[in-house]
Write a protein that binds this DNA or RNA. Structure first.
Lengths: 126, 126
DNA sequence: CTGTATCCGAATTGATACTG
DNA sequence: CAGTATCAATTCGGATACAG
């Protein structure tokens, strides 16, 4: 395992492992949703992102944003005001990732009914 | 939240929720790796997939394949032989998803060094 | 070979309370 | 406002044993 066949111009297993690891860190639910929120609305502050991602807890939002910052997907800007204002913005890297994920979104949107039907059929069979 | 701006031809929040939920189920680590293994090598039996995804336990492989079958991503064919042979194959839906994820793989491959650098810089700063 | 069932520790997550 | 700290609950995942 390691890469789609049409993807690989190299075949260093260590690079494959890194790629898999990176995807593992980046492809979790909350990261995807935050990425989407930022892609959609541009630079935004902490609470606005929280509102844009219903269901996320404050803890998960903080944790996800820190992780994204660490991966280089977002920048974090603290404005020295009272009350504090912290703004998050996608980096070019983050924006590129959002675009890459677009394909997955399209897939989900296009196939939502097929998937629901498959699920219903499977459940009926069991 | 709900969709990238360039994606949405509708804006039914219930559809958005469904899409997000679907992505949540489909974007987990093992599903991605199994998807990749099947995309790369075509129809394969249980144990071959296990070998193609190093690190996965039998339990997780079974569980992941069941879930993928439920979502309509793979078909499961049992051959009435002794010993039993069970083959898994991507559906069109599954294949399309694999293609959609290709973009993410490309992104990770292209940017692996940028990401590593970002991480190192972040860690040095803390 | 391809599973299912069970146990158990580890890791995630949510809720709540508190702080600069 | 934008977090941090903590605890409880759930979930995840590996190991093992067993079955068709």
């Amino acid at each position: 395992m390691g890469k789609p066949p049409h993807t690989s111009y190299h075949s260093d297993p260590r690079v494959d492992a890194l790629v898999d690891e990176t995807i593992g860190r980046v492809a979790d639910k909350w990261t995807l949703l935050v990425l989407e929120a930022l892609e959609e609305a541009g630079e935004q502050r902490f609470s606005a992102i929280g509102r844009a991602v219903p269901g996320i807890s404050q803890k998960m939002l903080t944790q996800t944003l820190r992780q994204m910052e660490r991966e280089g997907l977002v920048t974090r800007t603290v404005h020295a005001e009272v009350p504090p204002r912290v703004e998050y913005r996608l980096t070019v890297l983050g924006h590129d990732l959002a675009e890459a994920f677009c394909g997955v979104w399209h897939w989900a949107e296009r196939n939502i009914e097929t998937i629901e039907a498959a699920r219903a059929a499977f459940d009926a069979r069991q």
